[in-house]
Design a protein around this nucleic acid. Sequence first.
DNA 1: ATGGCCCGTAGAACGGGA
Length: 259
Amino acid sequence: MKLATWNVNSLNVRLPHVLDWLAASPVDVLCLQETKLVDQKFPREALREAGYASAFAGQPTYNGVALLSRLATAGEPDAVVIGNPHFEDEQKRLIAASYGALRVICAYFPNGQAVGSEKFAYKLEWIDALARWVAEERAAHTQFVLAGDFNIAPDDRDVHDPEAWAGAIHCSEPERERFRELVELGLADAFRLFEQPPATFSWWDYRQGAFRRNAGLRIDHVLLSAALRERARGCFVDKGPRKLQKPSDHAPVVVELAD
DNA sequence: ATGGCCCGTAGAACGGGA
C-alpha cells in the first residue's frame, strides 16, 4: 500500500492537480494540508467520483486539513478526530482517522514566522501538545503514522543553503529538538530509512526561481511506528506536480509499504 | 540592501505562508 502527504496550498485551486495525480499514481491514503476551504466547499463529491472518501476539517482563508482514502483499498475513514484533545485551538491543523488497523494523524504544523515571535511560541507549544497526543495514539495503535507539513527541516541535509538558514525559522534548534522528540516516541522518518538523492526537498519558494535552482527545504514528513517501519519499502518526493502550471509550492511525499 | 510569488478575502491592499 501507499501513503502520501501533500500541502496543496488551496484545494480549491489545486483540485485538478490532486485528481490528476491520484489518477496517474494512486495512493491508498493521502494527507492534505492548507486546503483553505470551509467544510461546505470541500469537493467531497468530485473526490468520491475519483474513488476517494474524504474526512476534513476546514475554516475560512487559512489552514485546513483532510484525509483522502481510496475506496477500493483503504475504504471509509473510521474514528475520525478533529484537533488535538490536549490542546484548545481555533486553527484547523489536525485530523486523525483509522483505516482498518492503520491509524493516521494528518498534521499541518504552525509556520512560526520568526524565531522568538509570538507565533514561534505557539508553534513550540502546539508541537509539545501534539507529542502528548501522538504518544497516546502510538501506544494505542501498532500501525501508526504521523504525516504532514511539519514546517521543520530536521537537519542540514534538508536545507539547500544551511549557512543562510542557520538558526532561522524551520531550522532552529528548538524546532529540530522537537522533531527529534517526536521521533523518540518510537517513530521513524520514512525518508531516511532509504538511500536518497542529495539535496532532496519538498518545498520551494514561489519567488526567485527557487524550484528551478532547487533552492528548497525538506519540511514535509511521514513518521512511521515500528510495525510500519518493518513494512516500509520506499519513500520519495514526487516533484512532478511542482513542475505544472500554477503548482503548490510543496511536492507530495510518498511512502510504499509491503502488504 | 531589499524583495522578487501565490492565495483568500475582498472588491484594494494585506496578512500569511516558509
